[in-house]
Simulated assay, not measured.
Amino acid sequence: MSDLPIVAIMYDFDRTLCTKDMQDYSFIPSLGMTESEFWQYSNSLGQREHMDSILAYMYAMVKISKDKNIPLLRQNLVDMGKNVELFKGVEGWFDRITEFGRANGMQIEHYVISSGMKEIIEGTPISKCFKSIFACEFLYDENGNGVWPKTDVNYTNKTQFVYRINKGVLDVANDNDLNRSMPDDSKRVPFCNMIYIGDGLSDVPCMKMMKAYGGYSIAVYQNKDSKVEDLLKKGRVDYIYPADYSENTGLDITVKNIIRKMSISETLYDEYTKQKNLL
């Protein structure tokens, strides 16, 4: 167990670490549908029934699979993660940033907070890089078929997982410890040692948390447009960069500089505490 101060880097997944919605690579084609057909069905269902959009797409996965007599098996979803296309540099990113943090006296932990499918993420080559993956997940029946949402991570409840990381309460079934009052100096990862990386409006609640509590937020993009620029102009995000995780890119350099700043802040705080205790 390391005694180093912890830095938590939290990532959205779709269009942040991979190039499009993760269902688009394998799951939707396995239904014999196009991406537009599936998402139109899901979105229309959600609007018609006034559903949470994430629950709507999860229901659509169950309903269409059942109608087409295609088993919605956990292992099949995990296997589909092998076909997810990651952005340039992603596979080497986590070890490189972790090692950089260690060299600067900080323990880096990586987390996913995604409205995509946990099962698919677990099948990607980077799944072992994360301390925890917070994402949507199915409950499976005795035959192994997905029948009900076990976890639903929508755009606003993403923030609860930031609090879980802050307090070190990573079990989603443990609400008692999550809601228990805790002094700031006993929380496992202070907000000022957090970085959130996402791709757009769905990540704004978490990005605003970072702004409010002293953390950092970064928006990544494939094609720069007015939406991502607006996030920066309106102060909803600290930085915007192309979704290129290679060494010496703007994203790489800025994350390393943030870690350096966190390390210096920890050193200065330790020195302040040491001198104060001598008085």
Rank of each mutant, 00 (worst) to 15 (best):
S114G: 04
G250K: 06
G105M: 03
D95L: 05
K274S: 14
I259E: 05
V189A: 07
I259Q: 06
V169H: 06
I70E: 00
D175I: 11
D184Y: 11
E247R: 12
I64S: 05
G32N: 11
R15G: 02
G235M: 11
M10S: 13
P5V: 09
M1D: 14
M22N: 06
S30K: 08
Q40L: 13
Y241A: 04
N176S: 13
V62E: 04
I264T: 12
V255K: 03
L251Q: 06
A56G: 08
D244Y: 03
L72Q: 01
R236W: 15
M51K: 13
I258T: 05
D52C: 10
Y155C: 07
E122M: 11
P125R: 07
I120V: 15
V189K: 03
I9L: 08
A8W: 03
L72H: 00
N223K: 15
T159Y: 04
I120P: 02
M207A: 13
N154P: 04
K158Y: 07
L231M: 15
F38S: 10
K150L: 10
L201E: 14
F100L: 03
V255Q: 03
E35K: 15
P125K: 11
G214C: 11
V62T: 05
E49V: 08
K233L: 14
I9W: 03
I120T: 02
A212D: 15
M182L: 15
P149M: 02
Q160S: 12
G198D: 07
S181L: 14
T124V: 05
T16G: 04
D95M: 01
Y59A: 11
V204W: 11
L73I: 01
L178S: 09
Y216P: 00
W148R: 10
I97A: 01
Q107N: 14
I195W: 07
A173R: 12
Y155T: 10
M61P: 01
D244Q: 05
S202F: 04
R188W: 10
